[in-house]
Structure formats: structure tokens, C-alpha cells
Simulated assay, not measured.
Amino acid sequence: MDRDFIPVRIAVLTVSDTRDAADDRSGDTLVGRLEAAGHVLAARDILRDDRAAIAEKLRAWCADPQIDVVISTGGTGLTGRDVTVEAHRDVYEKEIDAFGTVFTIVSMNKIGTSAVQSRATGGVAQGTYLFALPGSPGACRDAWDEILERQLDYRHRPCNFVEILPRLDEHLRRK
């Protein structure tokens, strides 16, 4: 059985104390790839490394019925200002544990043991997928090209994120 492509609506959040719209190379990388794949850019923003502000933005986008997926870039490292992972986990209802593991495997093939410094993560909240990626364009390319492009394509077999998207919030609906 052949399946038709189903575009999903994706919001991109760049977390940085130094970037703005003119030099957001990682955000641009994600937007270029998601649009080239046939998906819809539903929203885009840049926020400073502030845990509460990031979590607030994630919750707002999760509550928006016009957004299916949120991808953030930046703030996943180990320094004191890197709080994106904590903000994501403040919002998650369920963590997609294997996302970080698979990202680490992909990264190991590209940057060797430096991959241990990444804390990429994924999860689900309010029927929305959330992914936190490192702030480099290379890491964004790797995550999109090796993981997200396939998992956000309804035609990908044996399974993908899109086919279960309508069921992510089934626990909130009345029986």
C-alpha cells in the first residue's frame, strides 16, 4: 500500500543570547530542510537562554492547534547558560528516550567522542512533538537528515511519528 505524504506544521525556536534573525544559521538550516521536505513552517522565534521563558514558549506552541512539532536549536550543552533541555523536560508529558540515543550515535559518526557533550532530547506534550537540538548548523543537519526527515514522513516504514500524531493526546479525550 502506497501512502501519500502528509505535511506537518513545525515551529522552530532558536535559543541564544547572541543570535538574531540576521545570523540564525541553525534556525535557517531547519527551516530550509523542513520546507524542502514539504512541511509547513508554523512559527519561528528566537529566545535568550532563560528556562522559564523557553518553557512558556514551548507550552504556548503545544497549546496551538496549528502546530504539530516544535524543534528548538541551542542551549543543549553543558555550560551554566544551557537550560533548553531542562525547559523541555519541564514541559514533557513523555520523553522520547531513544531520540537522544540515536542522535548521539549519528553524532559519533560525525564528530567522534565530542558527541558526549550534546544533550539532544525529544518528548511529547499536549499532542505535540518537541525536539531540542544543539545550536550548530551541522547538528541541525544531522538531526534532520538522519532522524527527523524520516520520522516526520508518513510514508516511512515500518513506523513514524506522523502516523501516531492523532493519538498522542487520546488520554485527554472522553471515552
Results as ranks from 00 to 15, higher is better:
65 P>H: 13
46 I>R: 12
156 H>M: 11
154 Y>E: 11
159 C>A: 15
101 T>M: 05
91 V>L: 07
78 L>N: 03
170 E>G: 09
60 A>D: 11
141 R>K: 13
69 V>L: 10
69 V>C: 08
21 A>Y: 15
91 V>I: 03
117 Q>M: 07
120 A>M: 08
38 G>H: 08
61 W>I: 04
83 V>S: 06
172 L>N: 14
39 H>E: 09
151 Q>T: 03
48 R>I: 01
39 H>G: 08
98 A>V: 09
134 P>K: 08
107 S>V: 02
41 L>Y: 14
30 L>H: 01
171 H>I: 10
27 G>E: 06
12 V>R: 03
111 I>L: 06
103 F>A: 02
20 D>E: 14
124 V>Q: 14
139 A>G: 00
56 E>L: 12
139 A>E: 03
29 T>K: 01
96 I>L: 15
47 L>H: 04
4 D>H: 00
76 T>C: 04
73 T>V: 02
67 I>V: 15
71 I>W: 13
68 D>C: 06
173 R>E: 14
43 A>N: 05
119 R>D: 06
122 G>Q: 01
114 S>D: 09
58 L>Q: 12
170 E>K: 10
165 L>Q: 10
57 K>A: 09
160 N>S: 10
125 A>N: 05
168 L>W: 02
130 L>D: 06
54 I>E: 09
96 I>R: 03
173 R>T: 00
140 C>N: 03
56 E>Q: 15
114 S>E: 10
49 D>H: 10
165 L>C: 10
75 G>V: 07
102 V>D: 02
153 D>H: 13
74 G>T: 01
136 S>M: 11
50 D>W: 07
76 T>D: 00
65 P>L: 03
133 L>K: 07
75 G>M: 01
106 V>G: 06
172 L>V: 05
10 I>H: 06
60 A>P: 06
81 R>V: 13
8 V>Q: 03
26 S>Q: 02
107 S>I: 08
6 I>H: 07
63 A>K: 13
81 R>E: 02
147 I>G: 00
151 Q>H: 03
135 G>P: 02
63 A>N: 14
100 G>L: 02
